[in-house]
């Protein structure tokens, strides 16, 4: 019996890293947006936070695109 520990380990590592990374990125993005919401309520603006937020979302979108790429072009 040959168990492919390397494959299992890499699945584990990749899933863990990318899930945590993506969720944290997304949360940061949402934080940025809600900061704008609060700033707008006070009549100010939060340009830096919003730029950061959109960068985060862009990274998430890239990850989704990569996911679709993996689905479509599976070996």
């Amino acid at each position: 019996m040959k168990i492919d520990w390397a494959a299992l380990g890499s699945v584990f590592g990749v899933s863990l890293a990318s899930t945590v990374g993506l969720v944290v990125l997304f949360t940061l993005g949402i934080n940025g947006l809600s900061r704008r919401e609060k700033a707008a309520a006070r009549g100010g603006s939060a340009a830096l936070a919003v730029t950061g937020a959109y960068l985060c979302f862009a990274a998430c979108a890239a990850a989704v695109a990569y996911g679709i790429y993996l689905i479509v072009v599976k070996p």
Binding site: S10, V11, V14, S15, T19, L22, V23, F26, G67, I71
Partner: peptide, 13 residues
């Protein structure tokens, strides 16, 4: 998100 990444990672690796 965890489900999506685990499924994709597993089928790809």
């Amino acid at each position: 998100t965890s489900a999506a990444t685990a499924i994709l990672a597993s089928s790809h690796l």
